[in-house]
Amino acid sequence: MSAVVLKYKTMLKNKFQISDNYLSNLNTLTKLIFAIFFSVFIIFLTNKFALLFLFVCSFIYVLPLKKFKTMMFFYLLIAIMFGLSLFFSFLLGLAMKKMGGNADFKMIVPFLRIAITINFSIALILSSKTKKLVNILKTLKFPRVLFLPIIVIFRFVPLFARDMKQIHESIKIRIGAFNFFTMLLNPFLFIRIMMAPTVIRALRSADELAAAAELKGISDTKKITNSSPESFEFKDAIILIAGATVAYICLILNFINL
């Protein structure tokens, strides 16, 4: 009885999680258009207020996912990288007496540019299932030379994860725990024991996948169709219009030059 209750509880929980999150219900193509468009658009923005406005909008866009830890991790990573860069510049400035330690560092603009792309990427990755991403390829009608390898990449990752686990277990049995210090102290051993089995496994997996593709008739000349197409709904149109409006406001803010 309790097993049945637990099953329904899990089912309801899953259902709630999907329906609760508006990003998951959006068309994957809409999210992809957003991510691609804004990753290019931000390069043309030079005004910090325009970028700040876009950053706030992208934050609101990604907010329903509630992935605050992931976002903070990436923001912190950018800040650390910029901090290291500034430290190097400062050292060089001290050495050369040219750059100087009192240079006017405009950290906020590059930081915002990268943070915005991260927000849109998080929204795309964490709200789209692999199946939906694969279906985009079918919707866009990619040629065989592009479609087949990309499908392989999506399908290969779980297979490869299993292989890597097996390789890791074998290494553990032979030389013990494998960590950063092993890599640091024995880099050549690391390459030998990690790379050789990985490459051999990858080549064997590729042969197996090729045979499976032949058996499934993927080499045939018939066009590939999307069996479960996503419909373009009213909410997608609303989101796209909202995105266009945000872009327009950003352009105005950029040209006003506050």
Partner: peptide, 17 residues
């Protein structure tokens, strides 16, 4: 097909490793 699959496999492998 085999060549395309090897290219896909290696593209994934390089990224993951």
């Amino acid at each position: 097909n085999r060549e395309l699959i090897i290219i896909g496999t290696f593209a994934a492998l390089i990224k993951i490793v």
